[in-house]
Computed example of a mutant assay.
Amino acid sequence: MGYSPEELQAARDRLVPDVTASGLRVLFCGINPGLMTAVTGHHFARPGNRFWPVLHAAGFTPRVLKPAEQGELPAYGLGITNVVARATAKADELTAAEYREGGRLLAEKVARLRPQWLAVAGVTAYRVAFGDKHAAIGPQQRTLGSTRIWALPNPSGLNAHWTLAAMADEYGRLRAAAFGDGEPVPHQMHGAEGS
C-alpha cells in the first residue's frame, strides 16, 4: 500500500467522509485527517497510528479492525469525525481559527447526531477548539447538549510519551463509562443504524 510523495501531497486539503450514525455511544474525534487518510479515505490510516489497536485493547471492538473496515464501527455504537476536516501532513499546519471553527461545526454535528459521548483524541485540539485551556485527559465538565465529552490522548505514533498500554487504559475508562463496567465488548448493536 505504498503511495508516492506526489500522491500524498495531492491529497492535501482533501475532505474525508465521517463514519457516523444517530445515537452512537461514542463519537471519536480526531484532530484532522493526515495525508494517508486523505489518500485512502480511511480514518487513522497512517501506519504507526495506534487508534485501531487501542480501540481493540480498550474493549471497544472484538478484534483489531483495519482502517478499511471503519464502516463496521456504527454496528458497535461507535463513529469517527474530526475537529478540522481539511487534510494536512501535520496537525501543526492548522490555525487556531480553524480549530475554533472546527469546534463550532463539531458542536452542530453533535447536536444533530446526539452521541452519548464525544471523545476528542488530542487534548490540545480540544483545548483550542473549545477555548478550554486547562482541560486535561479524561471526562470534561462541559457538555454539548446531553452529550458528554472525554479528552483522550492522541493515538499518533508521534505521541511517544503515551504507551499503547497506557492509552488502552484511558480509552478503557471511556469504554466503561459508555458501555458500563461489566458489559462485554459490544456485538453488532441494534439501534445504531444511520438516520
Score class of each variant (00 low, 15 high):
residue 49 N to R: 00
residue 50 R to C: 07
residue 51 F to P: 00
residue 52 W to Y: 11
residue 53 P to K: 01
residue 56 H to E: 08
residue 57 A to K: 11
residue 60 F to K: 01
residue 61 T to I: 05
residue 67 P to K: 03
residue 69 E to S: 01
residue 71 G to L: 11
residue 74 P to Y: 02
residue 75 A to R: 14
residue 77 G to Y: 08
residue 78 L to Q: 03
residue 78 L to A: 06
residue 79 G to V: 05
residue 82 N to G: 14
residue 83 V to I: 15
residue 85 A to H: 13
residue 86 R to T: 12
residue 88 T to P: 00
residue 88 T to F: 03
residue 88 T to M: 08
residue 88 T to W: 02
residue 90 K to H: 13
residue 92 D to K: 08
residue 92 D to C: 05
residue 93 E to M: 10
residue 94 L to R: 07
residue 95 T to F: 02
residue 96 A to I: 10
residue 97 A to D: 14
residue 97 A to S: 12
residue 103 G to K: 09
residue 104 R to T: 07
residue 108 E to F: 02
residue 111 A to D: 14
residue 114 R to E: 12
residue 119 A to K: 00
residue 121 A to T: 05
residue 123 V to C: 11
residue 124 T to E: 15
residue 125 A to E: 09
residue 133 K to A: 14
residue 133 K to C: 10
residue 134 H to S: 14
residue 135 A to D: 12
residue 135 A to P: 13
residue 136 A to C: 14
residue 140 Q to P: 04
residue 140 Q to Y: 05
residue 141 Q to E: 15
residue 148 R to V: 09
residue 149 I to H: 06
residue 149 I to C: 05
residue 150 W to K: 03
residue 151 A to H: 02
residue 151 A to F: 01
residue 155 P to V: 00
residue 155 P to K: 00
residue 159 N to K: 07
residue 160 A to Q: 15
residue 164 L to N: 09
residue 164 L to K: 09
residue 165 A to P: 08
residue 165 A to G: 11
residue 166 A to F: 11
residue 169 D to H: 09
residue 170 E to P: 04
residue 171 Y to T: 05
residue 171 Y to M: 04
residue 175 R to N: 08
residue 175 R to S: 09
residue 179 F to D: 03
residue 181 D to N: 13
residue 183 E to T: 15
residue 183 E to M: 13
residue 183 E to R: 14
residue 186 P to S: 04
residue 186 P to V: 04
